[in-house]
């Protein structure tokens, strides 16, 4: 199968259908990346579409020596941050955003469900950056070094953030009521 990097090489030479192939490969991961944080279908789709516009625009800057997936998530991260920065919103933790987004995952009755729902409730209590870190290190399986590159900070800074995030998640999970709430 043709690799992501080879598809990008084709895209750089003007073949836009290879961008479409990359969309087919990654749209579920990207949609999940955005949806898990926003819980908003339309917003997540728009962010994915905008991201692919960004890929088309920046395709000449991609260096095929480096893994495509890291570059993709770097752009995905930038797209998301730009979106919220322009609207002066963060999620969650910003009260206004918390009101705007559907709050199904933070409803108290959800807390009495099984451990997966408990985990979702705990995840919902993390701030935006912490959710992004979880998405990248756990869902996408990216290494700390790759995440450091995506977020534009040092490896040691990412380590500290990952540790803090996981500790916060554990605390939130412990504090989320179990059955019989």
């Amino acid at each position: 199968m043709i690799t992501d990097e080879e598809l990008m090489l084709q895209a750089k030479s003007g073949d836009m259908s290879s961008i479409s192939d990359l969309f087919v490969r990654y749209h579920k991961e990207l949609y999940t990346f955005y949806y898990r944080q926003s819980k908003n279908d339309a917003l997540s789709k728009d962010l994915v579409q905008n991201l692919f516009e960004r890929i088309i625009k920046n395709r000449s800057k991609y260096d095929t020596k480096y893994p495509f997936k890291s570059w993709l998530f770097k752009l995905a991260w930038n797209e998301q941050n730009d979106f919220y920065r322009k609207r002066k919103l963060t999620l969650p933790g910003d009260e206004r955003m918390a009101h705007i987004l559907p709050q199904t995952e933070s409803k108290r009755e959800d807390a009495s469900a099984d451990s997966k729902q408990r985990l979702n409730v705990a995840m919902g209590q993390l701030n935006q950056e912490q959710q992004q870190l979880i998405q990248m290190t756990q869902f996408q399986g990216l290494k700390y070094a790759e995440v450091a590159d995506i977020m534009g900070c040092s490896l040691s800074a990412i380590k500290v953030r990952v540790h803090r995030t996981m500790k916060s998640l554990r605390t939130a999970y412990i504090n989320t009521p179990n059955h019989g709430y």
């Binding site: 579920k28 999940t32 949806y35 898990r36 997540s44 994915v48 997966k116 979880i134 756990q138 869902f139």
Partner: peptide, 11 residues
């Protein structure tokens, strides 16, 4: 493990 087992969401 709980996080990693979460399935991808299909739009």
């Amino acid at each position: 493990s709980g996080i990693q087992e979460e399935p991808l969401i299909t739009p």
